[in-house]
Design a protein around this nucleic acid. Structure first.
Lengths: 235, 235
DNA sequence: TTATGCATTATGTATGACATAATAAAATTA
DNA sequence: TAATTTTATTATGTCATACATAATGCATAA
């Protein structure tokens, strides 16, 4: 069909800007494995000359790579390839006020998934010192858990410690990114109202299981512990 | 102590560039909730004038926000605030060849955590059509699972479908980001050699549980299913 | 040999100009 | 008058040039 093929031609129109092209070229250069971390890339003027564009365009493309954490540029040395701290970078752009509602809700869910799923790593890597610290956190807890006016700081301290125990820094960073989102969603009108404000398995109960139980038991206990959050998602 | 306070003064030296300051100022402007998605921010020249810097600096700061997905700029309309597609953005910068080894390993672990933790969402949101599709995927599977030369595409099809069932688009994007990393780590020398190449719970077994079992059963089954991966992490 | 200062160099910042595309306003036509 | 085309305006995109700044290496002096 003539019209159809015409439409396809339209859709394949190259609408990308000059900078887009240069950026793609540079990214591909990195992906082609010809360059490793620590290697430096040609200087701006050289790139501008070789690609036949202005230094402005090159600078903008390089800037994008820099924001993405792929390179780092020093005053004299030029730009060098770096290993990006992904979550550090996106943490900057995770702004509860700006993210749309469905994304916010999904990030709320993500936390529940992570805390249930990380059981095996906790059991594999926990140390006696960790257990001691957990017990200390729990002991300091205000026992007014019934009215759900539980201290947010204690929540963060306890659950944050669990992430720490997994020994997975990326996971920890992920949590740090999720924290403000979770708090925001929790207090916004995005979810159903809190119906049952009962706490099932307590923090202390979780610690007991960590000490004497199994990953399997922990998963179920954590699922139970988070019931109040789940109940706001499912009806 | 004089020296000490002097050193503190040194450490607090402001080493940030002009663009850094402008960027921070703009981000704060967004976070201050005075602006919502869809609102447009002042034009470049106006910002340059108001902040007393050149248009070059403003452009670079705005560009950073754009790369982070916080704004989008159109030809005439100026820049408007947008809700960032976080994982879409970082997917670009997730390059297994560039990420350092420990991060790669941690992202490998992240997948295991997610797939075990997402049980409740699968059970809550699965439809009969989903089950039918899962069965179809399983039926097409090459049953040469013993020698572990299982088809990568089938792995992706099956596990990808599970992510899809959760109905969490953010989670799905997260998986898409993790996929190449997981594959890379799996085939690189980063982990221990595969010792037992036995498959415990099969894909078919998982489907059975989804159909007739509980989230609790699924978590344990998935943990078992992923044993080959876990065994390469733990000794 | 060790500092110190100087020259060099590549990125950072500033300015001015023009291109381009999207919007609004004006003009033309039915 | 209403609909359509043309034109003008405007803000971002690209280019070119100049100078500032900071890091590096070399030369010089103590």
């Amino acid at each position: 069909m003539a019209i159809n093929s015409l439409m396809e031609d339209f859709s394949s129109l190259d609408t990308s800007s000059l900078v887009d092209k240069v950026e793609a070229k540079l990214v591909q250069l990195l992906k082609d494995q010809k360059l490793n971390v620590g290697d430096s890339i040609p200087k701006e003027l050289e790139l501008a000359e070789r690609l036949g564009v202005s230094r402005t365009v090159i600078r903008e493309a390089l800037l994008r790579l820099r924001v993405m954490g792929l390179i780092e540029s020093k005053k004299k040395k030029g730009a060098v390839i770096t290993s990006p701290d992904i979550f550090g970078i996106i943490s900057k752009s995770v702004n509860p006020h700006i993210l749309d509602q469905s994304t916010l809700k999904e990030m709320f869910e993500l936390r529940l998934i992570l805390e249930i799923g990380m059981a095996d790593f906790i059991f594999q890597r926990i140390t006696p010192a960790d257990i001691k610290e957990l017990k200390q956190i729990v002991s300091k807890e205000p026992d007014a858990t019934q009215d759900y006016l539980f201290n947010i700081e204690h929540e963060i301290a306890f659950h944050g410690k669990l992430y720490e125990i997994t020994g997975n820094e990326t996971l920890k960073k992920f949590q740090r990114m999720l924290l403000p989102v979770f708090d925001y969603v929790h207090h916004s009108g995005l979810l159903k109202k809190q119906v049952s404000i009962k706490r099932f398995v307590s923090h202390k109960g979780l610690v007991d299981i960590i000490e004497n139980g199994s990953p399997e038991m922990f998963r179920n206990a954590m699922r139970n512990h988070l019931e109040n959050h789940f109940s706001r998602l499912f009806e």
